[in-house]
C-alpha cells in the first residue's frame, strides 16, 4: 500500500468532508444534521479504538468506560470547580487518557480473549460505579442541565452550530491519527501487532507502545464523551454501558481495520443504517443483526475493501476515472 501517496489528498479530504457537511447543513434538515453530529461524536472514540485494535492489534471492549470518564469527568469538573466547559473538556480528556494509561499497566499482561474480557470487566465496573455512586454521579437519573460549550459568548445549543465544532475536532483527530500511523511510532505499533517477539528483538518496548496507544485511545474516547455530554446536555450511565463498546467495535470492524479514515465509513454505516431500518418496526433489530453477520462473513477486510472490490468489478467504462481505479487496485492488493 502506498502510504505516502495517501498522505497527499489530506486537503482534498478536508474539502470533500467540508462540502458534504456544508451541503447537509445547507439542506437545513435538523434530523440529518443531528445524525451527522452523532456520527462525528461516535467517530472520535472509534478512531482511538482503530489505533489500538487495527494498528496495535489489541482488542478492547472497555472503550465505553473511557467515554464515560470523559463525559462525567468534564461535567463534574465544570459543575464543581465552575470551570468553563473548554477547560473541563481538556482536563477530562487528560483524565481519561491517564485512566487508560494506568489500566494499560494492568490489562496488557493479557492477550486475545482474556484481554477482551479484562477490558469488558472494566466497562462493567465503571457502569456499576456510575449507577451506584449516587452522591457524585446522580445514579441512574444522571446529571441534567449541563452547560453547553460556547464560542465567544455564543452557546452552541443547536445541532447546526455544534456540527462544525464536532467535525473540526474529528478531522483534527483523524489527521493526528493518520500522521501517527505513518510515523516511526506507527511502524512500531504495527510491528507489535504483527509479532511482539520480533518487536522486542528490534528494540521496541512492546508493553510501552501498547500503553501509549491505550492512553491515546483513552484521550480520543474521553474527548468524544466530554463533547457528547456538553452537546446533549444530560448524561446517565446508560449510554456508557458495554453496548457502546460493542458499537465502537462494530464501527472499527465495519470500516476495516486498516486506515484511520475508514472509521468514518463504519460510523456512517452504524448510525445511518440503523436509522434506515426504523420503519421496519420490530424487525429492525433482527435485520441489523443479520447485516452484521453477513458483512463480517463476506467482507472480511471491512466494508471499505468490499466496496472497493465491487467497484473494481464494474466494467471499465462505468468507472469515473482510470487513475482512480489504478489507485484502488494498488490499495486493495497491498
Amino acid at each position: 500500500m502506498s502510504r505516502h501517496a495517501m498522505n497527499k489528498p489530506a486537503l482534498n479530504r478536508f474539502l470533500v468532508l467540508a462540502a458534504v457537511l456544508g451541503l447537509a447543513a445547507f439542506s437545513n434538515n435538523p434530523y440529518v444534521i443531528n445524525l451527522l453530529v452523532v456520527c462525528g461524536l461516535y467517530a472520535l472514540p472509534a478512531i482511538g479504538l482503530s489505533l489500538l485494535m487495527g494498528y496495535t492489534g489489541q482488542i478492547s471492549l472497555g472503550q465505553s468506560a473511557f467515554v464515560g470518564v470523559g463525559a462525567y469527568g468534564s461535567v463534574l469538573l465544570a459543575q464543581h470547580l465552575q470551570l468553563d466547559p473548554w477547560y473541563s473538556l481538556a482536563l477530562a480528556t487528560a483524565l481519561s487518557a491517564f485512566t487508560a494509561w494506568s489500566l494499560g499497566w494492568l490489562v496488557f499482561r493479557l492477550k486475545g480473549h482474556h484481554l477482551a474480557m479484562a477490558t469488558l470487566a472494566i466497562a462493567l465496573i465503571l457502569h456499576t460505579v456510575l449507577v451506584e455512586w449516587r452522591s457524585v454521579t446522580g445514579g441512574p437519573d444522571g446529571i441534567s442541565a449541563i452547560d453547553p460549550i460556547s464560542i465567544a459568548g455564543h452557546a452552541l445549543l443547536d445541532d447546526l452550530h455544534f456540527l462544525p465544532l464536532a467535525w473540526l475536532v474529528c478531522y483534527a483527530g483523524l489527521c493526528l491519527a493518520d500522521y501517527l500511523v505513518r510515523s516511526p511510532f506507527g511502524l512500531a505499533m504495527r510491528t507489535v501487532s504483527e509479532n511482539e517477539a520480533v518487536a522486542r528483538s528490534l528494540g521496541i518496548d512492546a508493553a510501552q507502545v501498547k500503553r501509549k496507544v491505550m492512553a491515546l485511545s483513552g484521550a480520543y474516547a474521553g474527548l468524544g464523551g466530554a463533547l457528547y455530554a456538553h452537546w446533549i446536555g444530560y448524561i446517565s450511565p446508560e449510554p456508557f454501558s458495554v453496548a457502546f463498546s460493542i458499537k465502537l467495535l462494530l464501527i472499527v470492524a465495519l470500516g476495516g481495520v486498516s486506515g484511520v479514515w475508514n472509521v468514518l465509513f463504519g460510523v456512517f454505516i452504524v448510525v445511518i443504517v440503523s436509522e434506515w431500518l426504523k420503519p421496519l418496526g420490530r424487525l429492525d433489530v433482527v435485520i441489523y443483526g443479520l447485516l452484521l453477520i453477513v458483512v463480517m462473513i463476506y467482507c472480511r477486510e471491512g466494508a471499505v475493501a468490499a466496496l472497493a472490490g465491487l467497484y473494481r468489478k464494474l466494467p471499465q467504462r462505468l468507472r469515473p476515472g482510470a487513475r482512480a481505479s489504478l489507485k484502488l487496485q494498488g490499495r486493495t492488493s497491498a
Partner: peptide, 13 residues
C-alpha cells in the same frame, strides 16, 4: 478473534 466476537454478537442480536 474480533470477527468471531462480532459475528456471535450479531447472532445474539
Amino acid at each position: 478473534v474480533t470477527r468471531g466476537i462480532i459475528i456471535t454478537i450479531g447472532v445474539g442480536i
